[in-house]
Design a protein around this nucleic acid. Structure first.
Lengths: 333, 333
DNA sequence: CTGAAAGCGCTAACAC
DNA sequence: GTGTTAGCGCTTTCAG
């Protein structure tokens, strides 16, 4: 059932049918009604490919993220999907994994789908930062469609970022530990992403500001996975540690397991702070103090202005959030 | 830059360019090389809309799920996306929410995108079961494209389901509680989905088999959210309860919080079992015994046979998994 | 207000 | 092996 069939059945030309489909004001209400009736009776829907070919767009947006199975990213994907769908956009999702080459390939691939905008979820895509030449692929992509980085930013035309000031957020978190009197604070991490580096900077800054020494031995790289983290800490966690800042809740949960296994009580003898404010943080016992970044970031995204962009106007290139420290029982309240 | 431009630059016809793009054996290696060179120099990629219009497909599959932000579903989405992408399919994702009308609308909408197959994630889409007339929308959809239900099944041509035998899995779980000597086992739930009903059946079956009474007061409906569950239980949990089966880990985590708040020790005085075997289960203290269903279900999906379907052959209509009971410290080991 | 007709860029018969 | 050409189904001038 195509536009010709409808035209024939309704006794009008295809041009008129097309106009009705697009609700053009140039058609009399009478013919509109007539044509609509025929369309409904045959439950006709226009062919999206033909439409796409003519208009150059199918009203889809592309979302690329390292892995939707990760709660943090899923949250971002869900947010974008929900909001853009409300405005009639469909979403093509692509999980790229965490290899830079794969990231570039994913972007190239999804651009071929002639999407109307590209969303990259997570700081991973900015690699080593705003001006890392490796992020040229983003600038390249932005020549075709507006690119929105969720929790990321790179310099360039037609590129927009909404992100959490990870450095400041971590400073805040580590300051809390320091204010509790912690002297040997472990920095627990498991990736070398840009975001991870910012967190490290925040950690160092806070120590410096408090006049505490920055001890190389207090940077602890652990394998991912709660159980793994526990084991890694059991093996080599310096005994003097009395505070832990973890770059995500999973790591923090592992630290908690470690503490329990060794009989260290939290928060009395050891304070622990996580990051992401995920369900893990609330499941733990004691519950984890954690930094909420994604949720905060998403709240600040002005969807209207993004849509404005898709329709002509321009949003702020860079939206910053501070990240909120949610205090719970894993630190002294 | 379109096929005409490339043809002109390469000094061949558009048919030849098309053949090269599709790697037809009917072109000499020489011209292939020549054309490829021009394509690369101009980094030409064929227009997917035009292609779709001609072929009637753009090699995309549709995934509909209630909410990707839910870890359980995200796991399913990630699995489908990854595997189908390996075979060159792109994924259109749509989160439908948990309203039946919205579910139908989502399916209708995504079908308009002329996807090559539809995946529905979660038992929600089967409403009250295989033969619920409300699931006609699935049979309707299946007239256009093969429909795959992940953790669901409805009767019908061109419909394929992979699912966990929730009833058997819960029986197994409740049997464990009974074998520990628990006499007053709470059934903790928060939805009335089909899957939830199956779990309830499994619970009842296990009690019956053990000659234990089925007590109406032991069916406990809680609000979602760990904190909410705790509060709800604090208000009205029957005092004699010595075992809890929860239909998901979030609820189980809430039960654990409740136990801690009231000084009930787990698993000594109260055993708790969750469902989904999520990260929550491992974050809890003590860690939750839980049923792994999705992961098991996904493992059983024979992607090759699904792809076979997309290319002609036919997979099993229904693939059953048992669900694995992963025992941890929230029950006596 | 409505219709005729020219694309949009590609695939696949069909010729050569 | 390669080229010609007729669609695929829709949008959009341009006439009327």
């Amino acid at each position: 059932m195509n536009i010709y069939d409808i035209a024939k059945l309704a006794g009008v030309s295809i041009a008129t049918v097309s106009r009705v489909v697009n609700d053009s004001p140039l058609v009399s209400e009478k013919t509109k009604a007539k044509v609509r009736k025929v369309m409904e009776e045959n439950n006709y829907t226009p062919n999206v490919f033909a439409r796409g070919l003519g208009l150059g767009t199918m009203k889809t947006i592309g979302i690329v993220c390292p892995d939707v199975a990760d709660a943090y990213m899923a949250q971002g994907v869900a947010f974008i999907e929900r909001n853009l769908r409300e405005s009639g956009y469909d979403c093509i999702l692509q999980c790229s994994g965490k290899n830079p080459e794969d990231a570039k390939a994913a972007v190239t691939n999804i651009l071929n789908k002639k999407i109307d905008a590209l969303f990259l979820i997570g700081s991973f895509y900015m690699f080593n930062g705003d001006n890392d030449p490796n992020t040229d692929y983003i600038r390249e992509a932005a020549k075709n469609v507006p690119v929105f980085l969720i929790n990321g930013y790179v310099e360039g035309q037609n590129i927009y970022g909404a992100l959490c000031d990870d450095k400041a957020a971590v400073e805040q978190a580590v300051n809390l530990l320091i204010s509790e009197g912690r002297k040997h604070i472990l920095f627990l991490y498991n990736t070398d992403s840009h975001s991870s580096r910012l967190k490290r900077e925040g950690y160092i800054e806070a120590l410096n500001a408090a006049g505490l020494p920055v001890d190389e031995n207090l940077f602890f790289f652990a394998r991912p996975g709660i159980e793994d983290v526990k084991r890694d800490l059991l093996m080599t966690c310096p005994k003097e540690v009395d505070g832990i800042f973890a770059t995500n809740d999973r790591l923090a949960a592992g630290a908690l397991k470690y503490a329990r296994e060794t009989g260290i009580s939290v928060p009395e003898d050891l304070s622990i702070i996580g990051y992401d404010n995920s369900e893990i943080a609330i499941s733990c016992e004691p519950e984890l103090t954690s930094v909420d970044s994604m949720c905060e970031t998403l709240c600040r995204i002005n969807i209207d202005s993004l849509l404005g962009l898709l329709h002509g106007s321009v949003p702020d290139a860079k939206t910053y959030t501070k990240g909120i420290l949610v205090r719970r029982a894993s630190t002294k309240l």
